[in-house]
């Protein structure tokens, strides 16, 4: 009896998911297709602008999740750029940091016959099959932020993102200038690094870029991953502070880990920031980082521009008009030290 009730419940639930699943998959393209077909014969008579307004460019965005402020700003950038007023329809999917969700999302985009797919991959590997499916369906894939590792690079149209190696170099360059300005250029400087998730492009690039510009008087005491999260960053920094008495510089490979590190430093009775003992170098430059710099806790944040929306939109327009784009498209990025934080914060979009 009990088993019967359970099986009825389960099958009902299954049926419900199937129905909603199908509903989403079929109804939208149908709705899209109908007006397009109707509009086609009338197109000659109608002004070109109106026809364009009828045929919105449908873009599917498979986003990683919302693990940080940076990601949130990135999402917002797409949501504000790809609006109907600009001739777009955005289908947004939050993968909650799981690759299988992203693959599912891409397959559903293909089913819905979108015009372009934008993918911010969670990890670099394992994309060959699903990108092949997109290619066979004739849908160009634009990668945002992180790279994929596929055998055939024709599987994606191009990649848009920050130049992580350059960010690392910029950070080291800033430190060198800062130390010179303080008259500490010849001093022994001890550095620890809170790395991002090992293997992520941002971690690899920033670690590499910083290492390539290390001055002779600098020593890298230790590197440990804080997995890009505040709590791990804090935990690892707590450990660093007990291991090493004389840390001069902390390089945190994103802002969230820097916030964790700042909390750990304060709890250990030390000080950081422009007025403190420990120099904090961070990456991403989200709004909270500016607030932290104004509060005097952080020295510098190297921007990792999350506003990919406009650049992706440019690329799509180029492709629409039959042009070609480079495989690698960098977005513009700057270095924001604490001294100017109060002036720049107002102009920041994220």
């Amino acid at each position: 009896m009990k088993r019967k009730v359970l099986s009825v419940l389960l099958s009902a639930a299954l049926a419900a998911t199937l129905m909603t699943g199908c509903g989403q998959a079929t109804s939208e393209p149908a709705a899209e297709a109908a007006p397009a077909e109707e509009a086609a014969p009338a197109e000659e008579a109608a002004p070109a602008e109106e026809a364009a307004a009828d045929e919105l460019i449908v873009v599917g965005y498979a986003q990683v999740g919302a693990e940080s402020d940076w990601r949130t700003a990135n999402t917002e950038s797409f949501k504000t750029e790809f609006v109907e007023a600009n001739g777009y329809k955005l289908i947004f999917d939050d993968a909650q940091q799981k690759q299988e969700n992203q693959i599912k999302a891409i397959r559903s985009f293909i089913q819905q016959e979108v015009d372009y797919i934008v993918l911010a991959p969670v990890v670099e590997t394992g994309w060959d099959t699903v990108l092949q499916e997109a290619k066979e369906a004739g849908i160009p894939v634009i990668l945002s932020d992180r790279m994929v590792d596929v055998a055939d690079d024709s599987l994606y149209e191009c990649w848009v993102g920050g130049n992580f190696v350059k960010e690392g170099e910029d950070a080291a360059g800033w430190l060198s200038e800062y130390l010179t300005a303080q008259g500490r250029a010849d001093e022994e400087i001890n550095i620890v690094t809170l790395q991002g998730t090992i293997g992520a492009s941002a971690q690899v690039g920033r670690t590499e870029g910083f290492a390539s510009k290390m001055a002779d008087t600098w020593t890298m005491l230790d590197m440990q991953t804080g997995e890009f999260t505040q709590s791990k960053g804090q935990e690892v920094m707590e450990s660093f502070l007990k291991q090493y008495d004389d840390i001069d510089v902390v390089v945190a490979e994103n802002d969230n880990m820097a916030f964790g590190a700042i909390d750990a430093i304060k709890a250990a009775g030390k000080t950081c920031g422009p007025e403190g003992d420990i120099i904090i170098i961070s990456f991403d430059a989200v709004k909270a980082a500016f607030e932290s710099m104004i509060a005097g806790d952080m020295n510098v944040s190297v921007e990792c521009n999350p506003l990919h929306g406009p650049r992706v939109s440019e690329i799509i327009q180029t492709l629409e008009s039959g042009g070609t784009v480079d495989k690698v498209m960098y977005v513009d990025e700057g270095v924001f030290p604490a001294e100017t934080a109060a002036d720049t914060i107002g102009s920041r979009a994220y």
Partner: peptide, 12 residues
């Protein structure tokens, strides 16, 4: 976990 951090073993 704390021991492994203290011994500088990389988190991965």
């Amino acid at each position: 976990t704390t021991t492994l951090y203290a011994m500088s073993i990389s988190a991965d």
